[in-house]
Each structure stands twice: as C-alpha cells, then as structure tokens.
Amino acid sequence: MRNLTDNKTAVALFAGVTLVGALSACSSPSTGTDSGTADVNAPDAGADYTDGTYTESGDYTSPNGAEKVDVTLTLESNTVTDVTVVGYGENPNSIQFQGEFIDGIADEVVGKNIDELSVDKVAGSSLTSGGFNKAVDAIKADALAE
C-alpha cells in the first residue's frame, strides 16, 4: 500500500530509469482479475494494427501546470505485449504522482486489445489520463498508418 513517505518510484524516475513490465510489489495494486488475459483473442477487434513498438508523447495539465509523459507500446497480433511510461514532471509532486501512475500501469495493460469494446461513454477519469490517452490514440493512428 501507498503511504505518505513512499517515494521510491520518484527516485527511480529521477535517475532516468525506465520501468518496464512487472513492477515492485508494495505500492502497485494489481488487479488479480486478469491473469491469463494475454490470450484474449484479438482477431475480431475490428482494426488490424501493424506489429511493432511505438512511442508517443502526451501532454496533460495538472495543478502544477503542463506535464508530459512518453508512452511506448509493443503490439503483436493486435495485442499489447509490453508498455513503458516515462514521465517528465519537474515539480516534486508530479514526479511522485507520475511515479505512482507508472508503477500501477505497467503490469496492468499488458495483454489487452486496444479496441475491445463498443461503448457510448466511459465512467472514470484521472488527472494524467489525458496525457496517456492522447499518447495511446496517437499510437493507434501510427499503427494503422503503417
């Protein structure tokens, strides 16, 4: 669980370390509900994405001002097999926040198709989601263009 003094991910980011794949245990809630999702079948997802690794930057606005994250996805057979998120927050709050976000995200998104659902609305949001979503959208556009 997170606590008020947990800043190890902030330190990792500061050192320029890129976090990939499975991450530390204590501050990273894992869903435990999607084990085995790596074989979620993709073919009927609608769009065909070109296999490869894509990197995009996304901007978002936090209470500290403009912030930036880089998102790198690896696609294989329309399935995300790896994801890396690097934040560039300069404000200490942003660094820690992005650290937590990255900590949680990296072992969650692997194995899920990008286009899986047809919905009218999405319920939920986060301060940094704008940046991440923009980056994912751009990745989808890149992948479809190739």
């Binding site: 809630p29 869903t31 509900t33 976000f101 949680g104 995200i105 969650e108 998104v109 899920k112 990008i114 899986e116 659902l117 047809s118 919905v119 009218d120 609305k121 999405v122 319920a123 939920g124 949001s125 986060s126 989601s129 991440f132 979503n133 994912v136």
Partner: peptide
C-alpha cells in the same frame, strides 16, 4: 447508454 467502467490504473482499459 453502454458505459465502460474505466480501469483506475489504466485508462485505456475497462473492467
């Protein structure tokens, strides 16, 4: 309305 429940740790995913 069909509404996706956004994953709290990954906004590209729904639960």
């Amino acid at each position: 309305l069909r509404v996706a429940l956004e994953h709290p740790l990954d906004t590209s995913k729904a639960i």
